[in-house]
Design a binder for these strands. Sequence first.
DNA 1: ACCTGAACACCGTTCAAGT
DNA 2: ACCTGAACACCGTTCAAGT
Lengths: 236, 236
Amino acid sequence: MAQQTEAVRRPPLNRDRVLRAAVALADEIGIEALSMRKLAQELGVVPMALYKHVANKDQLLDGMVDVVVGEIDLPAPESDWKSAVRQRILSARRALQGHSWAAQVVRSRARPTPVVLAYMDSVIGIFRTGGFSVDLTHHVMHTLGSRVLGFTQELFDASPSPAPEAQAVLVPADAGQFPYVTELAMAVAHDEESVVGQGCDDQFEFEFALDLLLDGFERLRQQRWTSANPSGEKTV
Amino acid sequence: MAQQTEAVRRPPLNRDRVLRAAVALADEIGIEALSMRKLAQELGVVPMALYKHVANKDQLLDGMVDVVVGEIDLPAPESDWKSAVRQRILSARRALQGHSWAAQVVRSRARPTPVVLAYMDSVIGIFRTGGFSVDLTHHVMHTLGSRVLGFTQELFDASPSPAPEAQAVLVPADAGQFPYVTELAMAVAHDEESVVGQGCDDQFEFEFALDLLLDGFERLRQQRWTSANPSGEKTV
DNA sequence: ACCTGAACACCGTTCAAGT
DNA sequence: ACCTGAACACCGTTCAAGT
């Protein structure tokens, strides 16, 4: 009956409250532990009550992505295309990084929601108004891939690994077996004494790749690259 | 008793047979439908019998990745770094594309297996013997990210979507709401009349991004880029 | 209109036992 | 050494019913 008192006191459930509770719960216990049943319990409600506000778990995950994308800063008003794209993408990165599960959930979605489409539309718009042809914009967006939402697909995440283990993975016991991996891992370990010893500086790697791509885009734009005439220039 | 006869006839289970059956079953029914229970049934065995050969489902997935990575061609003997890297990565791409679930499983793994480490070692080796410093190789491998195994993280996969639906997603009903998305989608639809009408040419996009990155790498190598001196050249 | 309870058809994995 | 059977602690989602 204590439970009934709680039930009376709580505000009526709605889609927004469900989504925000899901985001908070995933932040806390991780995405793999998030279940409809646990979310319901957190909201003091029976599991099936959630299904009045989200059609199923997939729609719940879509909604959670929308909450995160809603945290991305609005585009800067006046700037060249390159710094405008940079600003948006690095802001997306900050938003995604605030929720450790977000990148993983984004890449698991089959289709973009309207909220995500609106964000992508604004990035495409920066390229178009910045002098990129539709054709070049198309391929440039493909090249960016997941980077447009502020994350890159590393080959291995190792996110749920205890910190001390990290070094042991990069420098395997049998160092002779993978000489180039070992050489690289040792150089990284040495190099980064200043940093917390975490290994690689994610932010640096992200910006390195982003800038390499943006510089390549600028070169293609200047050459008036088209997919019909990849060598550029000559047709002008 | 018919079942008992089958049981007698079948060769004894081993890790290799389990992994290969898992790969074949995932090819057939998809990775989300692959369960320890169904795999056991496929092998004519009780679920718990599998646990003598793989520690748990994570180790089964690791082993499945190893099977796919084992299908990547050996490196070409004599060639410049750029075509050698290109050849390996495009071969990895072919291997991964033979198993629709593979990219998704690779990116879900926390740590590389020895088989995957050996493949990465060989790619790192191409850069090192091709004149890249350890430092530059490190950042270049990060830039490649999942591309080193032949896939890129598109923002939305839409892989399990029926073909006719594809166009409807790219050209939303309310076209005015996302003008740049719409413009781009219409250009793509127009442009690709020659192709099956599937929308984007994945292979073209993959090679466009790969070549953009490889060209950027070559430029940095020539400038003697280092992370300590990103502008390059001057220190030489 | 919103929430509930019981049930269905699944999971991965444990334990103790069989051959 | 290898396989089995039963059980445990979960899932997402259905259906029919309550208020």
